[in-house]
Design a protein around this nucleic acid. Structure first.
Length: 272
DNA sequence: ATCCAGGGGGATT
DNA sequence: AATCCCCATGGA
């Protein structure tokens, strides 16, 4: 029934639960994962990843198992703080998300906790009206852009003031245009994304890092900001510009991985 | 640069 | 049950 894969530097648990990705449900030791119109199951024992309902080819890309994480971690391991985060969570990987799904997810994320983000996204998926099943578990496909523009009842979605962002994104964006941002330099792709209402630097960087393969993107939210201040700036106030310059210079072209590790690390052992 | 509305769930009391 | 807290964005 299920297939298996050897995964040397990989932690399914940390990869799922670090807050980068929202569409999964934990059922015992199994994660039922949804993305786009897919629904499949993953579980891990030691260095073996078991999967069901998905092709290996997709999974390798989705979980970035085609990437030499060990080599990347060596490159970002620049100081005792990041070193400790890497030691604690080695195997945490970026998930390569669908760009459109990623944009909508992070538009929903502004000033929200993870449970509510998940609930908004699930409600949006119900708008697509297309059911998917894995065993007893029933979900819905992620809606296409045009699906969000039509006049519908938005109240029950619970998106609040993000509603207008979502409608606008549905009107402006086609998958093609979003994917083409990959061909631009990081700065330009970021400029283009922040043209959209509701997309500031933080949300743009999330879309660039999680959806568009810009591994130098380093999303700075309040957790990261507090942590960076404490760890690298002796608790001094420091402007967003200086902070961006620092992480870019300090961590280099794989800064996004550093952000992933630091975020997970600081969220799980609060900054004093 | 700085301040703050705005929205709804979670934590706290 | 009531109140406080949280927070990315955007506009003043």
């Amino acid at each position: 029934m299920s297939s298996r894969l050897q995964v040397p530097v990989f932690s399914l648990r940390d990869t799922m639960e670090c807050g980068q990705f929202f569409r999964f449900t934990q059922v015992g030791r199994t994660y039922v994962v949804q993305t786009g119109g897919r629904i499949f199951a993953l579980w891990q024992k030691k260095d073996t990843l078991y999967y069901d309902g998905v092709e290996e080819e997709f999974l390798l890309r989705f979980l970035r198992l085609d990437e030499d994480l060990g080599a990347i971690l060596k490159m970002i391991d620049r100081d005792p703080v990041i070193h400790s985060a890497i030691e604690t969570y080695r195997g945490l990987r970026l998930i390569r998300q669908d760009p459109w799904e990623c944009l909508i997810s992070y538009l929903c994320s502004s000033a929200k906790g993870i449970p509510h983000i998940r609930s908004i996204i699930e409600n949006l998926c119900k708008c697509s009206g297309r059911k998917v099943r894995y065993g007893n578990y029933v979900g819905y496909e992620f809606p296409e852009p045009v699906c969000l523009t039509s006049s519908r009842q938005w109240d029950w979605v619970g998106a609040g003031f993000r509603k207008s962002y979502l409608v606008k994104a549905g009107q402006c964006i086609e998958r093609e245009g979003l994917i083409n941002l990959k061909n631009l330099p990081y700065r330009e792709a970021r400029e283009a994304l922040t043209e959209l209402p509701g997309v500031g630097k933080k949300v743009a960087d999330c879309v660039l890092l999680y959806g568009l393969d810009f591994l130098e993107a380093f999303p700075i939210d309040t957790w990261i900001k507090k942590g960076l201040q404490k760890a690298y700036f002796r608790n001094r106030q420091v402007g967003p510009k200086k902070m961006e310059e620092f992480v870019s210079r300090h961590f280099g072209r794989f800064a996004g991985y550093a952000q992933l590790y630091l975020y997970h690390y600081w969220r799980n052992q609060p900054i004093r």
